[in-house]
Amino acid sequence: MIKFVLLVFFLIKPIIAAENKFENIKSILKNDGLDALADQKKTEEEKTKSATLQKTIQRYNVPDKNQIWSFISEYWLVRNSPVIRWDFEKPDYGIDSSFATFLEKINIPEKKFKILLVNTTAITHFALPSNKDDLLFLLSVPFIKSMDLSKTEISLLLYEDMLRVQNDYFTEFAKTKELEDLLGSNFHQKKLGKSIIDEVIKKYDKIIFDKGFSFQQQFQVTTEMAKILKQDPVLMASYQKLLEKIRDLIQSQEEYKLYSKIYPSPEMQLKWILPPKKLL
């Protein structure tokens, strides 16, 4: 028994000695500020970890509605490059300066725009969704050459498209619920696939090549055009001429027979803008 007690005593003695040594020096260490330094380092380490985590989370940010549309429209253009053929050699038609002058004439200053000419009849003209304050137009060279459109008529065509995109017809159709819920959020530690963008691209294809705009939307745009142009009889006459040219083109050329499916219908648009005939 005594041997056991002695054994335990000799085992514990160094531990107790060490503790006593620490107790003796503890106050010195405290006075030297070492425990405060240890705490400070611990806090800094936690801050660094938190900052690193924040940076990682931020990488999963999703653009908001003001930044998404130019990105998706350009991605659609890239995907459809072989179909709509925008990469081709062309002369300077002076469309940028004539459209800028037209916008100034109808009191729309400081408006930036981009026009992409396409070498196809698959698309005639369109304004694609863009970020806030941006405008992106598609314009078919064969289409405008077939009708020998003047620069004023081209400007009127672009302005009609501008009204359509500003009325959100395209984005209201193209946006999916999944995309809408995702915009401006963060998908860290969540599953997200490419399908969310592919679904929107399919909607782009649908509206541009198949569905187009409704009669109601056409009526709204045409009456807006008439309201703006009535102040200028020369512009109004040019708009009428443009619609007549389109009407004649789609009646005479096979490749444009589906135009009215996308933009119904030049015949109706003419009726909407012309004053009703007086009965004698």
Partner: peptide, 10 residues
């Protein structure tokens, strides 16, 4: 390929 323009302040 973009034709870029901007209307100016009158």
């Amino acid at each position: 390929q973009y034709i870029i323009g901007k209307s100016r302040i009158k």
